[in-house]
Simulated scan of single mutants.
Amino acid sequence: MKKIALIVTILFTATQIYAQKIGVVDTNYVLSKLPQYKEAENRLNTQIEQWRSDLQKLQAEYERKREAFENEKVLLVGDQLKLREKEIVDLEASVRNTIGARFGSNGEVNQLRSNLTKPYQDQIWNAIKTVSTKNNLGIVLDKSNNISVIFLDKKYDYTEAVLNLLVKTLPKAEENKNNAPSNSNSKTGGKITPRARAQKRGGVEAAK
Rank of each mutant, 00 (worst) to 15 (best):
I22M: 14
I22W: 08
G23S: 06
D26T: 00
D26R: 03
T27G: 05
T27M: 11
N28F: 14
N28A: 15
Y29E: 13
V30N: 05
V30P: 05
L31V: 07
L31E: 07
K33R: 15
K33Q: 15
K33W: 06
L34A: 09
P35H: 03
P35W: 00
K38W: 00
E39D: 15
E39C: 05
E39K: 11
A40R: 11
A40P: 06
E41G: 06
N42V: 09
N42T: 12
N42D: 13
L44V: 05
L44H: 03
T46N: 14
T46L: 12
T46S: 11
I48W: 01
I48F: 02
Q50G: 08
Q50M: 09
W51I: 01
R52T: 12
R52L: 08
R52W: 02
D54I: 12
D54V: 10
L55I: 00
K57C: 04
K57W: 10
L58R: 11
Q59P: 06
A60K: 10
A60L: 11
E61T: 09
E61R: 03
Y62V: 03
E63L: 11
E63C: 01
E63F: 05
R64S: 15
K65W: 00
R66S: 13
A68G: 07
A68D: 09
F69M: 09
F69Y: 15
E72W: 04
K73T: 08
V74Y: 14
L75W: 10
L75G: 14
L75E: 13
L75I: 07
G78D: 03
G78Q: 04
D79N: 15
L81H: 05
K82G: 05
L83D: 14
L83T: 10
K86C: 04
E87R: 15
I88L: 12
I88S: 12
V89H: 08
L91H: 04
L91F: 03
E92S: 11
A93M: 14
S94L: 10
R96N: 12
R96M: 13
R96P: 04
N97I: 11
T98D: 12
G100C: 07
A101E: 14
F103G: 07
G104K: 01
G104M: 05
N106F: 07
G107Q: 01
G107K: 02
G107R: 03
E108Q: 07
V109M: 07
V109P: 02
N110H: 04
N110V: 08
Q111P: 00
R113A: 12
R113I: 02
S114Y: 13
N115T: 10
L116C: 07
T117M: 12
T117E: 15
Y120M: 01
Q121F: 11
Q121T: 08
D122M: 12
I124L: 06
I128V: 15
I128Y: 05
K129R: 15
K129Y: 11
K129Q: 13
S132H: 08
S132F: 07
N136Y: 10
G138D: 09
G138M: 05
I139N: 00
I139E: 04
I139D: 06
V140F: 03
V140K: 02
